[in-house]
Nucleic acid binder design. Structure first.
Lengths: 214, 214, 214, 214
DNA sequence: AATGAATGAGACTTCATTCAT
DNA sequence: GATGAATGAAGTCTCATTCAT
């Protein structure tokens, strides 16, 4: 019998632990986010990470440990310098901010972790707490800082929107929710999202626009 | 878990198919939402529905069929009469709307299905599509209708917020996202949410407030 | 393509739980004793018990649970009536006792459990303790009762052997140890054992023989 | 267990092959005896021998090879000079013999190999055979020699016990069996064993005691 | 000689599902 | 309609072993 379909003869590739570990984490994030933690087999992760299933266990104690590490890596708060720095909140800054927000809201990695939090958060209440502290609270504080800046400059129009500034940032959350629910990048709410972004930008620009002289 | 050690002497209860079916669907929604589809065993559903694991199959072809039926039930668009009817959009209506929105945003059943959509939607693109058509589009249309009403009445302040009215409804989405991620009802963002609701209410009230006479 | 080697088409055989359970326990004892607990796969047990591997778990929570149940069943002390009853310790009784002892010492089931205790006892100290209480202590007490009987009859020859009567019963232990180490029934120390039994019988008969009148 | 989280910075120690080999064998004996061959991982042996799992394979072809070598080492018959030598069998000798026997019966190394033989012997019938030839037969021969000596000296009391002298040595086997089944050194039958030893000693001393002159 | 990353085989266990009762 | 025993197909994890360094 001829056996032309030779087995792929996988070469054993040896990588530095940090490299492999990172590959595994990336693979895991991708798969977890696409199908959920429970429905993702370690086999798939291993395949995508380029090693055998058993190989995973040289780097992680268990499948759960992978998820945990993933969360630990991802929930480390990381904000761009220009966001945290004490820069003036002007038109340029608004542009930058809007671009940044909507870029992040479309970032597959961020969406992946959000999806994980929604789907698996119940089983990991501590992770939810960390996410609240590390990600959401800084976000809220940023909003507050912006308001304070504007108030100090006396350039703010006093209204419900500005008094509770989260109302003004809510559209980003809206977009994220839409993105979460639309499966892939294609189709879905792409159009709506783009329109919302620009409307949002215009809205925020109004806040920093020079007040019409009376 | 099949544990032969403790026969609690369960009585065999026979129910009408529709009743049992509904019990199963409720049980399934609860469990799926709490732990995800993949991590929910038919055993748990059966237990919560008050029958044996095998009994499920007298009512549903498969576990997947339960999920599908669940979605079918849940994605049937259902809007309260007063929302769809051609009623004037005034202060009373705003109150009603805000109360309705935030009540739904806190409705465990709705959150459950949202969570399901986020977690399992990828495997069921058709469901996402249906959800878009049945739930989101009507929602957007409602928004548009409101705007049109106001515009027709010439009572609208032309600004970015009103031109793209989704900006004005986004806070509801924001709240939903927060609720999705906070595990149970207790703890989490309860306070933030209440504050946001009232601010949101005030903001919307401004739209329908009588314009200051020039 | 012809497919003459039809799959064996295993019929699904449904048995009463107690029957199946007993089958499983017997199978497990056999396999554990033959190859040790660790080296015995649940697959083998299942095969010998006549059901699929997964079927085991309808009756036992785990492989360990099988072992535990096995021990519980086997360590239940069970002595023949005539041993416990307050019968005279005469020549007939000695015959009976010797036959009983050496029969038990050759009983595959008892050897199996002994082997298990030796091999796996370290991991289950509580089992060892139970074995001591349930099996060994009654044995020792029996010995003591015999001695007391004889002493009361004043028929005993005072010597080291009778003062510590375990010396007189030790040959049974010796035989058991030999049996444990000789693999199957065939070969090994069969001859030595038979000779030892008869010598042991003669020795014990001397104790109950009428003392030579002075 | 491979746990990447804590690199204790193990220094790489290079030893002469014979030294390492001996370390490995000792480690293996300890672990095999404590948990059985099947339940002992090479990881544990390696750890106890002070090298890495893979390092074992520089010294042994396989895990089975370790067991085999172990048996080969241990089944080499080794008797103390004074036992084999043609010394008179008198009171002093009895003392010596009893002390030696009961010391060996408590020797962890001997118990370890006995436990191995009981537990794994089935898979290695040749080993059992070797053990019989190398260990048991010399033992029996020794017994015979003692009897012959005594008979030649006409100092023996003709009775069942002496005609089949194994009856007189059986208590050692009894003690070994007890030791095998009591897990560690502590607890268990320590007391019984001590009493048995002294009774045994007295019994044997009677054989070599000067016969009462008629 | 020694290591740690890597692997294939196999272990136990769970699960969705079927079937006889 | 309902059940519990039974099953095949995974899934996670362990282990003895190999290989490049």
């Amino acid at each position: 019998m001829q056996c032309p379909a030779s087995p792929p003869a996988k070469k054993r590739v040896r990588l530095a632990p940090e490299v492999r570990k990172q590959l595994i984490l990336e693979a895991a994030l991708h798969e977890f986010s696409a199908q959920g933690f429970g429905a993702t087999s370690t086999e798939r992760i291993a395949q995508r990470a380029g090693l055998s299933q058993a190989g995973l266990y040289a780097h992680f104690r268990s499948k759960d440990a992978i998820l945990e590490t993933l969360f630990n890596e991802l929930l480390r708060p990381e904000w761009p310098q220009w966001l945290v720095a004490d820069v003036p909140f002007d038109a340029a800054m608004v542009d930058r901010l809007v671009d940044y927000w909507y870029a992040r809201a479309a970032d597959p990695a961020l969406l992946a972790i959000l999806r994980l939090l929604v789907a698996e958060g119940n089983r990991h209440p501590d992770l939810l707490e960390r996410w609240r502290r590390n990600v959401m609270q800084p976000f809220f504080q940023l909003e507050q800082r912006i308001i304070d800046t504007l108030a100090a400059q006396d350039r703010i129009q006093r209204n419900a929107l500005t008094e509770h500034f989260q109302l003004a940032t809510a559209p980003v959350a809206h977009v994220m929710l839409l993105s979460l629910i639309q499966g892939g990048v294609t189709g879905g709410f792409t159009d709506e999202i783009a329109k919302m972004r620009e409307a949002h930008r215009r809205m925020l620009q109004q806040f920093v626009a020079p007040l019409p002289s009376p």
